[in-house]
Amino acid sequence: MDETSNTKMIQMDKVSVKVKKMSILHDVSIDIDKGEFVFLVGSSGAGKSTVLRLLHREITPTSGIINVAGYNLSQIKISELPHYRRKVGFVFQDFKLLPNRTVAQNVALSLRVVGARGSHIKRNVDRALEWTNLTHRKDAIPEDISGGEQQRAAIARAIVNDPAILLADEPTGNLDPDLSLEIMRLFERLNKRGATVLVATHDIDLALKLNKRIIIIHQGKIIEG
């Protein structure tokens, strides 16, 4: 584990990703302070999801250095990966809910994997479901709930263990404007509790409404931020 600056939670330095000679990201450098709330805005295919997947260490860069929460993600050992990911809440664009588990069981997963006690799990799951307005759907399985509810279940799972960092990939893509704003308020609440939040979205209006720092990405390059 490498120590990064106390104030920097995320540091990407000249990061490039190439797939079959095609450049997906080119020399991307981003610094995000601890406790900051940042929007990564860009059109579809701009490279937002690639940035988030790099930060979640689902993929590795072709070149460049990534430091997150004191971990050098280019050199992190496979055995350290679970510990790193437990510090990061991730809202996936395609939700990634377990199809054969209830909403509550899906939300509890992030706590189960760290061996949390039953009472702690119940308390946090109930709170996350309440925050995402899903208490009434806790015993349903994902295929029996709407796209918006699935998205909120994915958000509940990402926040249930009070992560130090929250990465959200198009978290409001399936939600109506009112609910989108409500989810953003929820992220703000987490941010006020100390979490660093990075939200990837194509919805610049939503980002502007919250009056937070905005990084704009276009064709794999940072053009503002």
């Binding site: 679970p82 990911r85 437990r86 996936f92 990634k96 997963l109 992030s110 760290v114 799972r157």
Partner: peptide, 11 residues
């Protein structure tokens, strides 16, 4: 399912 478990921090 295995991938999701890994992504949420399962060893």
């Amino acid at each position: 399912e295995i991938k999701i478990m890994r992504l949420v921090g399962s060893s």
